[in-house]
Design a protein around this nucleic acid. Structure first.
Length: 944
RNA sequence: GGGCUGUUAGCUCAGUUGGUUAGAGCGCCUGCCUUACAAGCAGGAUGUCGGGGGUUCGAGUCCCUCACGGCCCACCA
């Protein structure tokens, strides 16, 4: 704790809150004390569990604002559930991130001027990647520790850990056994820079203006020609047909004829296929089965050969051809020029098109025919049952998995219903190697461990498939592999029994298909085979990887722009944290977080929440100062003892004592506390972090500091012995403050921990422990007191009215002035006289005079229940007062007219619900009073 | 081509199933160093709820339409 005690400030907190002085200490404490580690298996005491999997960041990654946002939301929920007495488990880990990591190490090699990965060899290269991983990997998890994320570090995993790798192999082999994995030559998205296939999802599309070339292909018999249209003329070298639509009358006569393919010595047929659209281009399309997915399909339909004419690096690969070895774009220009020279270039038109780019390398994807491994997602397993996609669709349709916001269910269904087989092989070295072995006779043996002989021909000449699996294949298994799948005996492990299905997944929509959908597919597929803990067969509803998915928005900059390095508008979380403190940043994020909503980050807002932290800090200073002043009495110590023993497990038999003679502000604040507890719980249940944060903020600043803390200054007198009401008030003050800290703790863990422990220390509580393991305040813990709330509201009205009047009359800030209250209701008058000290403190009232009637005009301010005058020599500013009254009058008149018009509408009174009509009547009556009063006051003003 | 989504105060956003006079933070104006806090206190101003039409006793909220944004999916040579 910082120690800047001064005679003026007889407490030991610094005058302003300095996050940097305390955050590291607590971050370290939370980790080192293993406070959030969760033991294996179900809790012995039968308490509920709450389980989440951290979306594993790439091992190469650094923390950005998006992580911090996601982690803040997740941590708020985890802390909240934990404080509610649940066994909260948040499992962290990192992903080996095949492509990203391999790229990074390759780049490093290049920078060192060392040999390429190919020269290094596979074994040495992967060793090098592991080395890199040990040394630099997992920067994010280090940063997470500093930010106080309450994950269970004892369970931290890496997707290439031995047990997880074994599970990946098991999953692949089982899919193969079920006939759901196959290998074949298909058109895939080829990244010529990374030299690997990538899945459809890893291709992003960009609109560009390209060129559409019209090329003439002469008939082989010399009787004519046909003009085709293409955007990629270089692929002409791989053409094996030209297709026209069977209904296209222009070409009917040509169907079946042979064309002399220009620049080659090959002839190719003209085929009829529906794919060719008469309206597009010339209506005739060249068919290149090896380099276009549609052409591949046409090739299949018409039994056309495929000519693979592009290499792995997208250069022309046609030995003997003059174009052999040319880059695809160089070849394009060359070929167009050559065709032009031959008079076969008919036209070149600008053509808007969408170009497929590799998400990782940004290179233009080249569709390429190659041998790849696929997961058959639409096929029923050999052993029976439904396809992977069917189960994944059912999981969401039946509500076993729920999305927030709900609209993502639609997106998910749409995608899942049109899903293609999943290309899972990658031509990389870093990742889980595919457990398949090829023999010299081109047979493939898929096995859990390296086989000695080929399963088909018995050959012993075996080499393992060089490819590795898509990173998302392994991460898609995580919800059950982290809990011990596959199990030796087929029964669930204790962890699986306790924590699967997990309760919630917090993630962004950017990995909805990549990861969320894959987890649902693989979870429902594999876990359906694992029986329930009691031995009964598992149902789909309990095979799902998580019961709920909460999808958050994107972090944007202050102008709602997406953050990107090229735009240079990236906000570094560490920087902003150093500037404002972790709690302030967390609160900023929470205060704007509602399902699906993007977060525009602007510093002004964070500045405001830094001020909020400072406010909390200073409220503590004030409390501590009073504790120091107070005699060492059991009265308030009992209060704190009560507070400190509030463990999450204690869920009942709690009663907070408030005596009827306790001053109104204390009864009021306790009642408000009850309400705000309910509000926060309600909001967090539906992921309205913004509403929860606003409720906590408003309560602490608006109610607790602005009103309670000021009023309590009237009560905290300790010079009359042990049972003085001041001590009772101090006890309530301590308890409400403690509860407020606990309420805020999930949102602002650092400052609340610091102050909670400081408070405990101050009260010599020996059983000190982290605030994170105390009970989350519940509405039922505190008595609701409608009478106190009503009285307090009236007093606040009175004080606000007097303040406004004083301001208008320009009564000097420090000068007290007498007031006169006119109220027809004696209860109002009584309340005012009984709380004259409150009025004096809050509105500088010198004395209160009561007049039993109402007053119209004469410099009074009015509400519907009272009029009040400030008795001061200075006259009110007549023109200003007239202006204000005129404005009010117009407002009331408008409201009155509208209300009365509606009330006299028979259709309204006949159809509207009673409470609406009553409400409107009441409002109309009140407005009428205000109108009359205002009108009278206006008339009473001296003439202009 | 298909789908989703947004437009509310100068700025960034709330506004639950349609219901009483639309809110918050920041910013702005005025006055205060009032012993927890100037990262503070008190008071104040600010809205044709994107345009138009419809349903309804009643619309920021539901429907249609237009305008301008944003996002996702897709095998348009």
């Amino acid at each position: 704790m910082t120690d800047q005690a001064t005679p003026e400030n007889p407490n030991d907190l610094a005058k302003a809150y300095d996050p940097s002085a305390i955050e590291e200490k607590w971050a370290k404490y939370w980790v080192e004390e293993h406070l959030f580690d969760v033991p294996e298996g179900a809790p012995a005491d039968g308490s509920k569990t709450f389980t989440m999997l951290l979306p594993p960041p790439n091992v190469t990654g650094f923390l950005h604002m998006g992580h911090m946002f996601e982690h803040a939301e997740s941590d708020i929920l985890t802390r909240w559930h934990r404080m509610r007495g649940e066994r909260a488990l948040w499992v962290p880990g990192t992903d080996h991130a095949g492509i990203a990591t391999q790229m990074l190490v390759e780049r490093q090699l290049a920078k060192e001027g060392r040999t390429s990965r190919v020269d290094l060899g596979r074994e040495a290269f992967t060793a090098r990647v592991w080395e890199w991983k040990q040394q630099y990997g997992g920067a994010i998890t280090t940063q997470m520790r500093r930010l106080g994320a309450t994950v269970d570090w004892s369970r931290e995993y890496f997707t290439m850990d031995d047990n997880l790798s074994t599970a990946v192999i098991e999953a692949f082999v089982r899919l193969h056994e079920q006939g759901l994995v196959y290998r074949g030559a298909y058109i895939v998205n080829w990244d010529p820079v990374l030299q690997t296939a990538v899945s459809d999802l890893e291709v992003t599309h960009e609109d560009r203006v390209g060129k559409l070339y019209h090329l003439r292909y002469p008939l082989a018999d010399g009787t004519g020609s046909i003009v085709i249209a293409t955007t990629r003329p270089e692929t002409l070298l791989g053409d094996t047909a030209v297709a026209v639509n069977p209904t296209d009358e222009r070409y009917l006569a040509l169907i079946g004829k042979q064309l002399a393919l220009p620049l080659t010595d090959r002839t190719i047929p003209i085929v009829a296929d529906d794919w060719a659209q008469p309206e597009f281009g010339t209506g005739a399309v060249k068919v290149t089965p090896a380099h276009d997915p549609n052409d591949f399909a046409i090739g299949q339909r018409h039994n056309l050969p495929s000519i693979n004419m592009l290499s792995k690096t997208a250069t022309v690969e046609l030995p003997g051809s003059k174009y052999d070895g040319l880059d695809r774009y160089v070849a394009r220009e060359q070929i167009v020029a050559d065709l032009d020279a031959l008079g076969l270039l008919v036209a070149v038109k600008e053509h808007p098109m969408s170009v497929g780019l590799s998400q990782r390398s940004s290179s233009v994807i080249e569709p390429r025919l190659s041998n790849q491994w696929f997961v058959a997602v639409n096929q029923a397993p050999a052993s029976g049952g439904e396809s992977i996609a069917a189960k994944a669709i059912a999981a969401v349709k039946t509500g076993a998995v729920k999305f927030t916001p709900e609209m993502y269910e639609k997106t998910y269904n749409e995608w899942m219903s049109n899903i293609h087989d999943w290309c899972v092989s990658r031509q990389l070295w870093w990742g889980h190697r595919i457990p398949a072995w090829h023999c010299a006779n081109h047979h493939i043996t898929v096995a859990r461990t390296a086989p000695t002989t080929c399963a088909t021909c018995g050959s012993t000449d075996l080499t393992q498939d060089p490819d590795v699996l898509d990173t998302w294949f392994s991460s898609g298994l995580l919800p059950f592999t982290v809990f011990g799948w596959p199990t030796v005996d087929g029964k669930p492990t204790p962890d699986m029994a306790a924590f699967y299905p997990t309760d919630l997944l917090v993630t962004g929509f950017d990995i909805l298909f990549f990861w969320v959908a894959r987890m649902i597919m693989l979870g429902t597929h594999f876990m359906l085979d694992v029986p329930n803990p009691d031995g009964t067969p598992r149902k789909l509803a309990d095979a799902v990887p998580f019961r709920e998915v909460y999808i958050h928005g994107l972090i944007r900059d202050a102008n709602r722009e997406k953050m990107s390095k090229t735009k240079g508008n990236v906000i570094d979380p560490i920087e902003i944290i150093e500037k404002f403190g972790t709690d302030a940043v967390r609160f900023t994020l929470a205060s704007q977080a509602s399902p699906g909503a993007d977060i525009p980050l602007n510093e002004a807002r964070t500045e405001g929440y830094r001020a909020f932290a400072n406010k909390i800090w200073n409220a503590a200073r004030f409390l501590f100062m009073n504790i120091d002043r107070a005699p060492n009495s059991g009265v308030w110590r009992k209060r704190l003892a009560y507070s400190a023993t509030q463990t999450p497990a204690k869920t009942s038999s709690i009663s907070f004592e408030v005596h009827p003679e306790t001053p109104v502000e204390s009864r009021w604040i306790v009642s408000r506390l009850s309400t705000v507890c309910a509000d926060i719980d309600r909001a967090l249940k539906v992921y309205r972090f913004d509403e929860a944060a606003a409720a906590a903020y408003q309560f602490f600043w608006g109610d607790f500091c602005d009103w309670y803390l000021e009023l309590v200054k009237l009560r905290l007198n300790f010079d009359e012995g042990d049972n003085h009401p001041g001590l009772i008030t101090l006890g309530i003050f301590i308890e409400v403050f403690g509860a407020a800290l606990r309420l805020l703790s999930p949102f602002m863990p650092f400052i609340t921990e610091e102050l909670w422990q400081a408070l405990n220390e101050k009260l010599d509580e020996s059983a000190m422990s982290t605030i994170a393991l105390t009970r989350y305040p519940q509405a039922s813990d505190f008595p609701s007191d409608p009478a106190a709330e009503r009285d307090m509201t009236l007093l606040q009205d009175l004080i606000n009215t007097i303040r406004g009047l004083r301001k208008e009359m320009q009564v000097p800030e420090r000068e007290a002035a007498p007031i006169r209250i006119f109220a027809s209701d004696p209860a109002v008058a009584n309340l005012a006289s009984a709380n004259a000290d409150m009025l004096a403190k809050m509105a500088r009232v010198a004395s209160v005079e009561i007049a039993p009637a109402t007053l119209h005009g004469n410099g009074a301010r009015s509400t519907s229940s009272f009029d009040v005058q400030v008795l001061y020599e200075r006259q009110i500013d007549v023109p200003a007062e007239r202006e204000r009254l005129t404005r009010d009058l117009a407002k009331y008149e408008k409201g009155l007219t509208a209300a009365n018009k509606q009330l006299s509408n028979e259709a309204f009174t006949a159809k509207a619900p009673a409470h609406i009509i009553d409400g409107l009547r009441k409002q109309s009556a009140e407005t009428q009073i205000l109108y009359d009063k205002t009108k009278a006051a206006l008339e009473a003003l001296p003439p202009a």
